[in-house]
């Protein structure tokens, strides 16, 4: 009974935190949706840990709880892979941005050099 209270409260606090982060626009939809979906599975399980005992039995796993632990680890691994993928995409994007920026700077500097050059030529021709 005490255990159910602890796990149940943890699940609920997580749910409230994520909904609040979404409400304040601190999480982008795609991540928010993911975590909401996860919590919709986790909260019932935290209240009724024995919910999966039947499924565990047919799979040959001793108890529902160890099945949940196993699935949890698999899920966390997938999340890590997803985050690495996102970071790779971001790195590719900042790289493109840096290139664009360097190209723009080269263009601006070439233009400025051309302008000072022509200004100097004008001075020289005026001075005779």
């Amino acid at each position: 009974m005490k255990l159910t209270l602890v796990t149940g409260l943890t699940g609920l606090i997580l749910l409230v935190t994520i909904v609040e982060l979404l409400r304040r626009r601190q999480l982008r939809e795609k991540y928010g949706m993911l975590w909401l979906a996860v919590l919709l599975i986790v909260v019932p399980l935290s209240l009724f840990p024995r919910l999966l005992d039947n499924v565990a039995g047919t799979l040959g796993v001793a108890s529902g709880v160890s099945l949940v632990l196993f699935l949890g680890i698999v899920f966390l691994l997938l999340v890590c892979v997803h985050l690495s993928w996102e970071v790779s995409a971001l790195e590719e994007e900042t790289r493109t941005l840096a290139e664009d920026f360097a190209l723009l700077r080269a263009e601006v500097e070439a233009e400025r050099a051309a302008r000072t050059e022509s200004a100097r030529n004008e001075l020289v021709s005026h001075d005779g």
Binding site: V19, L22, R23, R24, R25, E29, G32, M33
Partner: peptide, 11 residues
């Protein structure tokens, strides 16, 4: 549906 729900709970 998801986007609409989210837009409605957001401020």
């Amino acid at each position: 549906f998801a986007v609409l729900t989210l837009a409605l709970i957001r401020r």
